[in-house]
């Protein structure tokens, strides 16, 4: 009987432990990731990524190529629970926005890092698509693609 109640307790505790683990580790990784993103963004500050389609500078263009960066991000268990609670009342889902924001900035940085010698990125486009919606037991994740035309200018 004692064994049975212990088992029941474990059964109850297991999702809770996962939830707490998800919350704590998720927060730490998020914090670390933001720190890294900010550092890299400062490094790439001198290379602009524009949404303009034409280049109107004086320097002649030496070469152009396509630059792509992508990332797949998923939400943690805690955020999913938060989302479910939020769905009752409606309104902005604050727990999801930092995740997508992280994904976008990471994708943009990867795009820039794929062409380290470029002087400028033209016609930059960001695109988000759902890989799986996270219903039932499947993992909910989204892919963010950033792509643009990298210009190499003759100095």
């Amino acid at each position: 009987m004692n064994m049975q109640s212990l088992l029941n307790l474990m059964h109850l505790c297991f999702p809770l432990i996962l939830l707490i683990l998800g919350c704590v580790v998720g927060k730490i990784t998020e914090w670390n990731h933001y720190k890294m993103i900010k550092k890299r963004e400062e490094e790439w500050l001198t290379v602009p990524a524009l949404t303009a389609k034409t280049y109107s500078g004086e320097l002649p263009v030496q070469r152009s190529e396509i630059a792509v960066g992508s990332v797949v991000v998923s939400v943690d268990h805690f955020k999913r629970l938060f989302m479910n609670i939020r769905r009752i009342f409606g309104g902005e889902v604050c727990s999801y926005s930092p995740l997508i924001d992280r994904g976008r900035r990471e994708a943009l940085l990867r795009m820039k890092e794929s062409c380290p010698e470029a002087n400028m990125f033209l016609n930059c486009r960001l695109q988000t698509s759902t890989i799986s919606n996270g219903k039932g037991k499947s993992t909910g994740c989204v892919e963010v693609i950033a792509y643009s035309t990298a210009l190499h200018l003759r100095k």
Partner: peptide, 11 residues
Amino acid sequence: NIIGGELKGYT
């Protein structure tokens, strides 16, 4: 997916 973040395998 428990802790969230980037899924490197899918990327």
